[in-house]
């Protein structure tokens, strides 16, 4: 983790994006360093998923640059974008599983399409990943036949299949029970130690997700309000960050009295 500029894997420079009249991003600056985990937090509908889609090259900004491995996704050719994406592992917010394929085929797809591995090896590594996600027994079901949390985990298994260099997880633990989400966090921690991947995670699971984060960024009002370590984040001066920290982990739960006041005023 030196300051050498070449260990920045992803960099957003002054990214603006509007959908029709609605300005979603108004100058987002963000850097992700190699091997670190960036957690993006913020209220629902602020544009966290949109930031992720910019990093994936699925959405083009109106203004600004999106640099991945030092190359500007908006300027390079489709073939180069594809080459960059071979290093990605992505979990979409809605998991985006292929709904006419079984769970097994979903997880096996990257191996089948991108490598020349034989069917036996594919079977072994898919089963290993499914086991890791506690999904054994569901491999022959279709996405419509499994629960929402299971879909998330299938998406995770698929994202981690080809040992990516950069992973993007959009709300990996939303819809999972506490035990499962703890399990997933442990898994992230372990795999990241092994594979040393860079991670960008969008999550509402504050403060638990902070344990995983090297950097936390709050998106509010179309800009990143601060990009800092979790410890600094919790003590930051910025009023929006203070407000976020207080509502998510702050004094609301400290006394019963305050809570009842909160309910009465609602």
């Amino acid at each position: 983790m030196s300051d050498a500029p070449n260990d920045i894997v992803i960099e957003l420079k002054d990214v603006h994006k509007a959908f029709g009249a609605q300005k979603v991003l108004r100058g987002v600056h963000l850097q992700v360093r190699e091997g670190t985990t960036l957690v993006i937090v913020g209220a629902s509908g602020q544009g966290k998923s949109v930031i992720l889609k910019h990093m994936l090259g699925l959405v083009k900004p109106e203004q600004g640059e999106v640099l991945v491995f030092g190359r500007d996704l908006t300027r390079i050719r489709a073939r180069e974008v594809k080459e960059i994406r071979t290093h990605f592992g992505v979990l979409f917010q809605n998991a985006a599983l292929f709904d006419s394929m079984t769970v097994f085929d979903n997880v096996a797809l990257p191996l089948r399409e991108r490598t020349k591995v034989g069917e036996e090896r594919i079977r072994a590594s898919v089963m290993e990943k499914l086991d890791l996600m506690d999904l054994l027994g569901a491999e022959d079901k279709y996405p419509a036949q499994i629960s929402g949390g299971m879909r998330k985990r299938v998406g995770l298994a698929r994202a981690l299949m080809l040992n990516p260099r950069v992973v993007f997880f959009d709300e990996p633990t939303t819809g999972l029970d506490v035990h499962k989400s703890n399990e997933i966090y442990r898994l992230f921690h372990r795999t990241q130690q092994q594979l040393k991947y860079t991670a960008v995670i969008v999550s509402h699971d504050v403060p638990k997700i902070f344990k995983l984060a090297d950097t936390v960024a709050l998106l509010a009002e179309g800009v990143i309000q601060g990009c800092m370590s979790p410890e600094e984040f919790q003590l930051a001066e910025n009023p929006l960050i203070r407000e976020f920290v207080e509502t998510t982990m702050g004094p609301i739960y400290s006394s019963d009295k305050e809570e009842s006041i909160l309910y009465e005023t609602l």
Binding site: K82, V90, R158
Partner: peptide, 14 residues
């Protein structure tokens, strides 16, 4: 509609 094509692209599958 259900982002499956985006997912394919992100998996570097054309």
């Amino acid at each position: 509609n259900s982002e499956q094509i985006d997912a394919l692209e992100c998996m570097a599958i054309d």
